[in-house]
Simulated scan of single mutants.
Amino acid sequence: MSNQQQILFPVDSSKIDPLLSHHVAAVGASQADYRDAIDRLIHNLINIRDDEGKFLLRLADGRVLDTKSWNGWEWTQGVGLYGVYKVWEMTGDQKAWDIMTSWFEARFKEGTPSRNINTVAPFLTLAYLYERTGNRTYLPYLDAWGEWVYSGLPRTEEGGFQHIVYNSVNHQQLWDDTLMMSVMPLAKIGLLLNRPHYVEEAKRQFMVHIKYLADRKTGLWFHGWTFEGRHNFANALWARGNSWVTIVIPEFIELLDLPKDDALRLFLIETLEAQVKALAKCQTASGLWRTILDDETSYEEAAASAGFAYGILKAVRKGYLPKEYEALGVSAAKAVRAKINDAGELTQVSFGTPVFNSIQEYKDIPLTSMPFGQAMALLTMGEFMYRFI
């Protein structure tokens, strides 16, 4: 080789072999920008308020529940905590750690709420915190709530977790939300406390929910199923419900460290790929998805889109899905980034949504900032950051 200094000339990017291109050359994004978005999302998350009381949940027994502000105890804050934990896991950010631990300290002083599918959600993060710290004060909560999910939570026919919530027992109903809110915490607690029967129960719940909620025609998921009348309500292919599935399948496979030839792992991956193939067909030109995936008259919804982006990108990174799906996740993540405003709020997020009997009711759900929206955006921004590593 000549000792003469090498001179690099610009080359048509289409002629560069992918193996030779820089790994972030095609991302079209800045690491600093995404890190800044994460910081602003967290700030907004812990400062969300419902000053007008418009979104308060008023129960028949007189209790008033705040599902919007950070200092409540519901699935919305539970998912928020998990989003913050994932940021801490990647960055080691002390502020993120303090936010989580101070939340639990304050809520435990107030007293835990009544038990239902949704109030279990924070225990997924608590289990990770206990694993990291060995803080004995966390153990009784994990023990009591884990045992309630396993043996006390109402069941449907065939042993499914009935989606009981604060204001409705939802008799004999399965919802796709349940996999995130209660099944993932049960699996993590089972591994943590050496209770393999919890883990086996979590596996069974995935299979029961797939059996009754996955739409064989499209690969997408219905929001709910009832054994009373045996139907899927409005047959709604609701985006956020589908996004919980896209999130939890890669999370569950990773959590259980299922071997490559494990039958459940293969079944879950096949289920996920069928869904993602269908999602590719109904993604809008903006990179987002509509709140009813197959209804072009429904609005685009950013929280669900964030969930899809996260699950797709993680599944590709972990080798669960082929590399060909990465572009789908990247375009969605960039569309979600565009919906984070200067205040750190993920805009275009729909409020909490029950199972409805008509498609129009889903389309009428109002848009507002929510802790789970912030968290799902945090998941997406954090997963996207792997592109810069």
Rank of each mutant, 00 (worst) to 15 (best):
M184I: 12
M184Q: 12
A187T: 04
A187L: 05
I189Q: 05
G190Y: 12
L191D: 02
L191W: 00
L192P: 06
L193D: 05
L193Q: 08
N194S: 14
N194R: 14
R195E: 13
R195D: 05
P196E: 15
P196V: 12
H197N: 13
H197D: 14
Y198N: 05
Y198W: 02
E200K: 12
E200F: 07
E201H: 12
K203P: 09
K203F: 06
R204N: 12
Q205M: 04
Q205N: 02
F206H: 15
F206W: 11
F206P: 11
M207Y: 01
M207G: 02
M207K: 14
V208Q: 10
H209S: 08
H209Q: 10
I210C: 13
K211I: 01
Y212A: 03
Y212R: 10
L213S: 00
K217Q: 14
T218H: 07
L220A: 09
L220N: 07
W221D: 02
W221Y: 14
F222H: 14
F222V: 01
F222A: 01
H223L: 09
G224W: 00
G224V: 00
G224Q: 00
F227G: 08
E228Q: 02
G229Y: 11
G229V: 10
R230E: 10
H231L: 00
N232P: 05
N232I: 07
N235H: 15
L237W: 07
A239N: 15
G241Y: 10
G241T: 10
S243H: 06
W244V: 01
W244N: 03
W244R: 04
V245A: 08
V245W: 12
V245I: 15
T246N: 11
T246E: 08
I247V: 15
V248S: 02
I249M: 09
P250H: 11
P250M: 11
P250D: 11
E251D: 15
E251T: 12
F252I: 07
F252E: 07
I253G: 01
I253F: 06
I253M: 05
I253N: 04
E254R: 15
L255A: 11
D257S: 09
L258Y: 00
K260M: 05
D261M: 08
D262R: 13
A263Y: 09
A263C: 03
L264G: 03
R265P: 06
L268P: 04
I269Y: 01
I269R: 09
E270Y: 03
E270K: 12
E270I: 00
T271F: 04
T271Y: 05
L272M: 10
E273N: 06
E273L: 03
A274F: 07
K277Q: 13
L279R: 05
L279E: 06
L279I: 03
A280Q: 08
K281I: 09
K281W: 06
C282T: 08
T284A: 13
A285Y: 09
A285Q: 15
A285C: 08
A285E: 15
G287A: 12
W289A: 11
T291R: 05
I292M: 13
I292D: 01
I292E: 09
L293D: 02
D294P: 02
E296M: 07
E296W: 03
T297D: 14
T297F: 09
T297G: 09
S298N: 07
S298I: 05
Y299R: 11
Y299P: 13
Y299H: 10
E301I: 04
E301D: 06
A302M: 01
A302E: 01
A304E: 03
A306Q: 01
A306K: 00
F308Y: 14
F308K: 06
A309F: 08
Y310H: 14
G311Y: 10
